[in-house]
């Protein structure tokens, strides 16, 4: 077991290292941030001093090593644009993204689970087929176009909801949230819906598949034969059967949405982390991009690591030396 944990730990660290190299090189490749930061009329001496201060005169491998050295000490660098620690910038955007994703996943679950049950219980009925066809639509609509059409319909034509941006926030225990004001919720509605639609489709498919599988199982058939009411069967047996995969997938989706809900945040000008990432790429704010991707990867790697260890500890069938794919 210890050997296995050690092996997974080394693998995780290698992944983190690989990601840091790739991201560092990729952002390096886009362009020279000095040309964006420093106005052209600045004297050569001033410009050179700035380049040296940011360490941009060093060869790229040396820049990378000094980044790595600082990262090991917990310092992911200062934003080129704002001059403050990159991590602070990212964390300041976290609440906005978090509340958006929370509402989106809530919507997806509240609408997706009942529809999925409906479709799964009678897979061949007309409404079920319509629901399943709808999920294909949900997957098919490109996120940015869907967002634009939501704006067109609800903001431009109907005038019900604001077009973009974050609404009024209130501070709860020092964390600003717009979930508690009417204005805030109005601003949240469209981006959350936009983010929710593909997840709703995913939810419906998962639940439908799980339901179909559950009702064909012997114990459910037995319960039905015994005359247990349908409601009870669904509530006790079917739901329980599908809950684990749904929660697992929802959790994974939640993580990736918090880290990368970039497109929706761009369309709706939502001041979240995904918007920060895109803006930072376009401003060549290398420390922010690298810190962002590193934090996201660290989170994913850590979660995967824990899950694998737990699986291995709980399930003796998992081969401890084999691969987990």
């Amino acid at each position: 077991m210890t050997a296995y944990i050690l092996q997974r730990l080394i693998q995780s660290i290698l992944v983190l290292l690989a990601v840091s190299v790739v991201v560092f090189l990729a952002v390096y490749g886009i362009g020279d941030p000095i040309e964006l930061l420093v106005p052209p009329q600045v004297s050569a001496a001033e410009r050179t001093a700035m380049i040296q201060r940011l360490g941009l005169d060093l060869p790229v491998w040396q820049q990378y090593l000094s980044f790595l050295g600082n990262a090991l000490k917990g310092d992911l660098g200062h934003s080129f644009v704002h001059g403050v620690p990159a991590v602070d910038l990212i964390l300041a955007r976290l609440p906005a993204t978090f509340e958006l994703v929370l509402l989106a996943m809530g919507l997806a679950a509240v609408i997706g689970i009942p529809l999925g049950l409906l479709a799964g219980l009678n897979p061949e009925s007309r409404p079920s087929r319509a629901i399943m066809a709808g999920t294909i639509l949900g997957f098919s609509l490109p996120s940015f176009w869907k967002g634009m059409m939501l704006i067109l319909l609800f903001s431009v034509f109907l005038g019900w909801l604001p077009t973009a941006g974050r609404g009024e926030t209130v501070s709860v225990f020092g964390i600003p949230t717009s979930l508690l004001t009417l204005d805030g919720l109005k601003h949240l509605a469209l981006p959350a819906l936009n983010l929710a639609i593909p997840n709703m489709a995913l939810m419906i498919r998962l639940v439908a598949a799980g339901t179909t599988e559950a009702i064909s199982q012997d114990y459910v058939k037995y319960a039905r034969a015994k005359g247990v009411r349908r409601k009870r069967i669904v509530g006790r047996h079917v739901l329980r059967n599908i809950l684990i995969p749904v929660v697992t997938v929802a959790g994974m989706e939640f993580g990736s949405l918090v880290a990368f809900s970039t497109i929706t945040e761009t369309v709706f000008a939502w001041p979240g982390m995904g918007k920060l990432l895109i803006d930072s790429v376009y401003q060549l704010d290398r420390p922010v991009v690298v810190a962002y991707v590193m934090l996201a990867t660290l989170l994913f790697v850590a979660v995967n690591f824990l899950v694998d260890i737990l699986y291995a500890a709980l399930d003796p069938r998992v081969k401890l030396t084999g691969e987990m794919a």
């Binding site: 992944v15 490749g29 362009g31 990368f260 990432l277 790429v281």
Partner: peptide, 23 residues
């Protein structure tokens, strides 16, 4: 090969393509 595959699949594809095309 499979570690590279895992790595590629773990990354959001839009980000990789965006950064690549930007350069």
């Amino acid at each position: 090969i499979m570690r590279i595959v895992d790595f590629m699949l773990g990354f959001p594809s839009i980000l990789i393509a965006l950064v690549l095309l930007a350069s």
